[in-house]
Simulated scan of single mutants.
Amino acid sequence: MPPGPRAVLVDDHEIVLEGLERALVREGIPVLASFRDAESAQEFLRGSEVELCVVDLRLGAESGTDLVRAIRSLRPQTRVAVLTSFEDRAAVAAAVDAGATGYFLKDASSGELCEGLRRVAGGQLVIDARLVSAVLGDRPRPLTESDVAILRLVAEGLSNREIGARLHLSPHTVKEYLSRTMRKLGTRTRAETAARAAQEGLLPPVL
Rank of each mutant, 00 (worst) to 15 (best):
G4S: 06
P5G: 08
P5W: 13
A7V: 06
A7S: 14
L9F: 14
V10P: 09
V10W: 08
D12Q: 05
H13F: 10
E14F: 11
L17A: 09
E18T: 15
G19D: 09
E21V: 13
R22D: 14
R26H: 09
P30M: 09
V31C: 10
A33H: 15
F35N: 10
F35L: 09
R36S: 14
A38S: 10
S40M: 09
E43Q: 05
E49Q: 11
V50C: 08
E51N: 13
L52M: 08
G60M: 07
G60K: 12
A61N: 11
A61C: 08
E62R: 13
G64D: 02
T65P: 02
D66V: 10
D66G: 08
L67M: 10
R69Q: 13
A70N: 15
A70L: 11
R72G: 14
S73I: 10
L74I: 05
Q77P: 07
T78V: 13
T78E: 11
A81E: 04
A81Y: 12
V82H: 00
L83H: 00
R89G: 04
R89D: 09
R89L: 08
A90T: 08
A90V: 13
A91D: 15
V92R: 15
A93M: 13
A94D: 15
A95L: 09
A98K: 04
G102H: 06
G102I: 12
Y103D: 04
F104M: 03
L105H: 04
L105D: 01
A108R: 15
S110Y: 10
G111M: 12
G111D: 15
L113S: 02
C114L: 09
C114N: 05
C114H: 07
C114G: 07
L117A: 08
L117Y: 12
R119D: 01
R119S: 01
G122E: 00
L125H: 05
V126Y: 03
I127G: 01
D128V: 10
A129W: 08
R130H: 06
L131T: 04
S133R: 14
A134F: 02
G137K: 07
R141D: 00
P142Q: 00
P142S: 00
P142E: 00
T144A: 00
T144V: 01
T144L: 06
E145P: 01
V148R: 15
A149D: 15
A149G: 13
I150Y: 14
I150R: 07
L151T: 02
V154I: 11
A155H: 07
E156C: 14
G157F: 13
L158S: 11
S159W: 14
I163S: 03
I163L: 10
G164A: 04
A165Q: 14
R166L: 09
H168E: 13
H168G: 10
S170N: 03
P171S: 02
P171C: 03
P171N: 05
H172K: 10
V174R: 00
K175T: 05
E176Y: 04
Y177M: 03
S179V: 06
S179E: 10
S179M: 09
R180C: 04
T181Y: 08
R183G: 02
K184E: 01
K184L: 02
E192F: 13
E192Y: 08
T193K: 14
A195P: 03
R196P: 03
A197F: 03
A197E: 01
A198M: 05
L202D: 03
L203D: 01
L203M: 00
L203R: 01
P204M: 01
P205H: 00
L207D: 11
